[in-house]
Write a protein that binds this DNA or RNA. Structure first.
Lengths: 345, 345
DNA sequence: TTGAAAGCGCTAACAC
DNA sequence: GTGTTAGCGCTTTCAA
């Protein structure tokens, strides 16, 4: 690798002159600057970031710690963040945790060792205490999920409210047995969504036994498949199902489109998130739309400001974006409401 | 930040002893090691990668340079690569180019400055010459797309063959006016796919005017929409359409599902790539399946081996994975074949 | 306008 | 078993 010393020797200058010329220092003559730049280009000189960092320069790297980049929520976030960072001369380190706290910890150790300027993290359910400690030394924000041990900076969506709305939609249509397939309650988002689901049921004066709840890994398409199969196999299967994660929604849609179940005649479905494809699934999927992009943009802007500003303004900041229900064709009143004659009595 | 010097002072040891203890050097007594590790943990010591790198350590960072992470091809690649790297103690730097060669160049400058151990790149159509020069100093592989200036290492799919197959499928069904919506020919993949399309036409003895070709930005959903609208608006609209990129396919599907065009009655469609959702689009999308995941795995393994091995084995290596046609309901013989009475004569 | 030299945190060669 | 010292490539005094 070519160093400033190499350039200095070739031009018979000192390293400091070369360094200053490269930095466009005003004390260096235009003539020298020109010669130095010329030589640097010819020799293929590329400044060594590590050496700069030793002199106190920042790494200009922001870590993005997420469960799985294939989830479109996270790839949207990665894209928006990346765009923003690039414009500010920052780079994005991508760290996938697969929802494993030890993997998460390893990534945070790396980010810390490479002195990342900042971190955006969608934490695992119960982060390792060392993870929390490491993050104390790095400006960071939590995204979507929130764990108290990682500090008060959080950008998320109103999980409770959006699930409440979605469930209310079914309740108002007259469903009295409603299923929920979602992530585990130990996950912040999982707990909030479940709470929203339950809140709608009680608001609709439905008894607790009206609920059919299936919790499991939120990013497992396979689990979505199996859960919906289980729900529909019961003797008193729900007439409406609310979904609590995008991957679970994927699994449920796949499963339903390969069975003979007719939506919404046999069962109504409310999805989570609005992917390309959800609109053309069966009769069109009624689903919860979430402002992921806007949230990611906001988060990126906030972090950039935080990094450029004095480090002592670590005032708590929380941003909660609202979601909204997109009503399409996959929800309708249950069969026994549409054809009262069929009612058991 | 806590340094080895800080630990040394606190324990009244020398920095080298501390360094050796931390490195688990055999010459250091267990007792000292214990004390050092204890102190390090207490003080929250995190080794400084930059300093290590100055002593010759590698960065343990691999750059992934792609157009847009939201494209599921690229997020699949990012995921597979990330998984592989993590297991080997490497980190992944994500660089999105948005198919802009200057952005690509900026990212490569950064990767070079931070002495990335390796680079996996899906190059823009015509990379900057400086980009090529920078890559010469870093072990790298091209993925999917290929540009000769960036070297002979390439992992891709057989774009020609898969497009030929897809087009042949329509030709064999009797279509005589076939549309192609794809990326620009200056893109390696764009040129290959177009070649495959044309090859099938001539193989089917169709005249050149049988082709309706729409080229444009390959990752623009909007362009897909407009292109299909244009094709179908013509007086002699094609009875079959072949698509040449995943995002264009998305756009076409969205457009078709919001108009009154009936697939495959009015027009047959062959998509590109097999996304979740393509199978439940309309009558089920006949599409080209590509082994993206397998390719990414292979690419990751190859790069890892390349990084662990002596740098002098830069023998050219090329891997071409075959795609396959997945026939579903969106293709059928054209109307005038199904009802011969309608034939113009 | 330029040069000499110190030092960032770490490792490794060379003492003892 | 432990300490001393030099040096990685760069920036930044301090001198000239």
């Amino acid at each position: 690798m070519v160093t400033t010393k190499d350039i200095a020797e070739r031009l018979d200058l000192s390293v400091s002159t070369v360094g200053r010329a490269l930095a466009d220092d005003h004390r260096i003559s235009e003539q020298t600057k020109f010669r130095v730049r010329q030589a640097a280009a010819e020799m293929g000189y590329v400044a060594n970031r590590a050496a700069r960092m030793m002199r106190g320069a920042s790494s200009k790297v922001v870590g993005l710690v997420i469960p799985d980049i294939r989830n479109s929520f996270y790839s949207t976030i990665a894209h928006e963040l990346s765009k923003n960072l690039e414009s500010q001369g920052f780079q994005l380190m991508l760290s996938e945790t697969d929802d494993d706290r030890m993997v998460e910890l390893r990534h945070l150790r790396e980010l810390s060792a490479s002195r990342a300027s900042g971190v955006v993290i969608v934490p695992t359910a119960r982060p390792h205490s060392e993870s929390a400690k490491l993050l104390q030394g790095i400006p960071h924000v939590q995204l979507l999920r929130k764990h108290s041990s990682l500090g008060p900076q959080w950008f998320g969506v109103d999980d409770f409210e959006v699930l409440r709305q979605a469930t209310m939609h079914l309740v108002e249509q007259g469903h009295t047995r409603i299923g929920y397939i979602g992530g585990p309650a130990e996950l912040h988002t999982g707990a909030e969504r479940l709470r929203g689901f339950r809140s709608a049921l009680s608001e609709g004066k439905l008894p607790a036994r009206a609920a059919r709840i299936e919790l499991g890994p939120p990013s497992s398409i396979e689990h979505g498949r199996q859960a919906v199969r289980r729900l529909l196999a019961e003797p008193t299967a729900p007439t409406g199902i609310v979904l609590g994660s995008i991957q679970l929604t994927r699994g449920v849609l796949e499963e339903l489109s390969r069975t003979s179940v007719v939506v919404p005649k046999d069962v109504s479905v409310v999805g989570f998130g609005d992917e390309p494809g959800f609109s053309w699934w069966g009769p069109g999927l009624t689903t919860m739309g979430l402002p992921i992009q806007a949230m990611a943009v906001g988060c990126g802007l906030w972090l950039m400001r935080r990094l450029k500003t004095e480090p002592d303004d670590d005032t708590p900041y929380t941003s909660v974006s609202p979601g909204s229900l997109i009503v399409r064709g996959s929800t309708a009143p249950p069969a026994d409401m549409r054809r009262p004659a069929r009612r058991r009595r």
